[in-house]
Computed example of a mutant assay.
Amino acid sequence: METVAIVGVGLIGGSFALALRQAGFGGRIIGVSSERTIAQALKYQIIDEGLPLEQACRQADLIYLAGPIHSILETIPKLDACTREGALITDAGSTKREIAAAGAKLRGAQFLGGHPMAGKESRGVQAAEGQLFSGRPYLLTPAAEGDLETPAAREFLGWIRDIGAVPRVLSPAQHDRIVAHSSHLPQLLSTTLSGTLGRHSESELIAAAAGPGLVDSTRLALSGWDIWHDILETNRPSILEALDLFIADAQALRARYAGAELEADFAQGKEFALRLRNTR
């Protein structure tokens, strides 16, 4: 792999470029983004040059789609006309079924869906950091079993490990079902909690009296609707399923609380919280 084109040089795309450099990648990194973003990425030495999509993709061995989901879906059909033979196209989108279906229609290059489980509240290329993926799961969603065995895919998998991420393989449908519970549900719960307290008649006193627990619980609420709109729109069935599960459990917990029978709930909650931390 000698040339990488990153389409969407924001937090994730910029961090991927920095992570590659820190892992020893000595090739060329081309950015495809707005003029303002390209100027920033060049200033911070995140990319080597900025080019239009077609010019960048004609030169790239790896095309990394790191924009919003709808942007990825709009870009994929354009790639058949400008992708070199043997190149690998991958993405960093937070939902996979629609993206995988679009990628399956490509004929000129291999498509391999991906989703790094990394991020932070700050956005834009100025927030990029090379260690963003370190120790984090990197979900891969091959359309077929042999998709991870091509030379391009094996090399990409090697770079994922080199940047410190932990590859995990799921089908596109399984991915969307799992992340609806592991990522999308926590986001909605944090947003709802923050909104509920913000609408409370004594919200100012609640905020002034809060400790780190509430700060931690509302951290995800700092994420913007512009990021989450595409995610929620393209994973609606799985997210509704996750919400229904939580609502049913919350209603059952309320009934148990009336009878002061929450010891088992605390034990079960603690058990999963410990398991979660032990997988990091």
Rank of each mutant, 00 (worst) to 15 (best):
M1L: 13
E2Y: 00
V4D: 00
L11P: 14
G14F: 02
S15G: 12
L18M: 12
A19P: 11
A19I: 04
Q22A: 14
G24N: 09
G24V: 07
G24L: 13
F25T: 08
I29S: 05
I29Y: 06
G31W: 00
S34L: 09
E35V: 12
I47G: 02
D48P: 08
D48Y: 10
G50E: 03
G50A: 04
E54T: 09
A56P: 06
R58V: 04
A60Y: 03
A60C: 12
D61N: 11
D61Y: 07
L65G: 09
I69G: 02
H70Q: 15
H70G: 10
S71E: 06
S71D: 11
I72H: 06
I72G: 11
P77G: 02
L79D: 03
A81I: 06
T83K: 01
G86H: 09
D91E: 09
A92I: 00
S94F: 05
K96M: 10
R97N: 04
E98N: 11
E98K: 13
A101G: 11
G103W: 01
G103S: 02
A104W: 02
K105T: 09
G108M: 07
P116M: 03
K120V: 08
E121D: 06
E121N: 14
E121M: 02
A127T: 09
F133V: 03
P137E: 04
T141M: 12
P142R: 02
R154T: 11
G158L: 11
P167E: 03
P172V: 00
T192W: 15
T196D: 07
R199T: 05
S201M: 01
A207G: 08
A207Y: 03
A208C: 10
P212E: 08
S217V: 01
G224S: 12
I227L: 15
I227W: 13
N235R: 13
R236E: 15
P237F: 08
S238T: 05
L240M: 15
E241W: 05
F246D: 09
D249Y: 04
L253P: 05
A255S: 10
A255G: 15
Y257R: 13
L262H: 08
A264I: 13
A264G: 12
F266A: 14
A267Y: 03
Q268Y: 12
K270E: 14
F272C: 05
A273Y: 12
R277Q: 12
